[in-house]
Write a protein that binds this DNA or RNA. Structure first.
Lengths: 243, 243
DNA sequence: CGAAGTGTTGAAGGGTTTCAAGCATAGTGG
DNA sequence: CCACTATGCTTGAAACCCTTCAACACTTCG
């Protein structure tokens, strides 16, 4: 059984327009649990999907590789996020899922979820909705990669993480834990770790944000938001209850 | 009524594992038609979705803007593609849809489609499947933006277009019509039009591909594919019949 | 305490942008 | 049919942003 206060169920319940009881069937599915250490792959490109994975604790990422070993994190996954929702409908993964920190993952049987979707329209719509929200994040990340400078790209990501972490209760107004090496941040932003380092220094010089010992301090949230041109519309928080 | 040989229905019918008759209800929906000229916006960021739009003729794109006017095409839309599938479930568009050529669009009433999805499981799954495939394209584009050089990025896009156009019968083995200015190609790849020009010259020098008068000639398809590291898995053509 | 990973900084190099100019092409009106 | 115009294509030179390479400091952990 999914525990009632697991991040996954908590996030789903936060949809403002859903009656609580509608999610009970989802919580009643049999469930497995997996523990991962950093750099450990949960699924690999080309695998045939057999489970639906939900990140419960820690950070992970959807990763795409280039033949020469360079990689890109298409999506950063936080507690409560579904790791591989498109595995429900596609025949093979076209990305990997890699743990960025120690993390624990719930796994639901893929067919059990599909069957539940067939019976329960609410659950089906909810999963589709989550997929579209993830898609919106990806669109925004693509805009960053295509047209924003390294500085704005980093600032924008820090803003996005602030809101996503706040929603699940992992941030305070003055900052949040950011348990990623600068190299991993670089893989999320399409930059090099050296340049991430220099860019953090710039943000610190501008008195906007500073990173130290895996803790991000927001020195001037409003200034950071404005300078990055960050608007939270694309997170589609409108349908969500406050955290 | 959607005409039986409209690109949209044609594409849906091409799912190999679907009995043909299952799609009849979709073809029976009432339908509107819109004509657009280049640079004309079909929907705008922030709009409230009221229709589901299907591109029937011409090229279009999902566009995201930066305050300073720079823009990025998140997805290139070809005949048969749904322009705004996430509008079915989200409250507001977080992107615009802009015509790149003259084009015609079918519009289905959003609620009619949602109602149909409620009745007809096959249609619902098919639309979800299309959304996931689009998502996969976006992931691949993000990898290009993050980690591929301009040359590889362009070569990769040309390969992708070759397969997508072939599927809908718009390409020959020696090339295809590419009715986009170099500036629009730049907006799709996160580059400048000047650099797109130089990059095309490079591909021509390498005897791989050449663009002239809106026609892309594939001089060496296999060489282009290999040099770009192009593998078509992410297009998820496996569930499709041959064009 | 040693080792490995991560953070930090400098210098040099390269890929892409910017700016600017000239050229080709297509469409328009006289 | 021919200016005339607008738009897009092409090319060069300079500037800029980011990468690469290298060295060293710091932290963490066995």
């Amino acid at each position: 059984m999914i525990h009632a206060d697991a991040p996954f169920v908590a996030r789903l319940r936060s949809r403002a327009d859903l009656p609580e009881a509608q999610l009970d069937p989802l919580g009643a599915l049999p469930i497995g649990r997996v523990s991962l250490t950093p750099e450990c792959q949960l699924v690999s490109e080309g695998d045939r999907p057999r489970y639906l994975h939900v990140l419960e604790q820690g950070w992970a990422a959807k990763v795409k590789m280039l033949p020469d070993g360079r990689r890109h994190f298409a999506t950063l996954l936080l507690p409560g996020d579904i790791c591989d929702i498109d595995g429900l409908h596609l025949h093979a993964y076209d990305y990997g899922v890699v743990a960025l920190t120690r993390c624990t993952v719930s796994r639901l049987d893929r067919h059990a979820v599909l069957d539940l979707c067939d019976e329960n329209r609410i659950v089906a719509q909810l999963l589709t909705w989550l997929a579209f929200v993830e898609n919106a994040l990806l669109n925004q990340a693509a805009l960053s990669l295509a047209r924003r400078s390294a500085r704005d790209r980093l600032a924008h990501l820090l803003c996005e993480l602030m809101l996503r972490l706040t929603r699940i209760g992992f941030a305070r107004v003055d900052g949040y834990d950011l348990p990623l090496s600068q190299e991993k941040i670089a893989d999320a932003l399409g930059l090099t770790s050296v340049h991430i380092n220099r860019t953090f220094r710039q943000l610190r010089t501008e008195q906007l944000a500073s990173l130290s010992r895996q803790r991000l301090s927001l020195l001037d949230w409003d200034g950071l938001r404005r300078s990055a041109g960050f608007t939270p519309d694309y997170l589609h928080l409108d349908g969500m209850r406050a955290a």
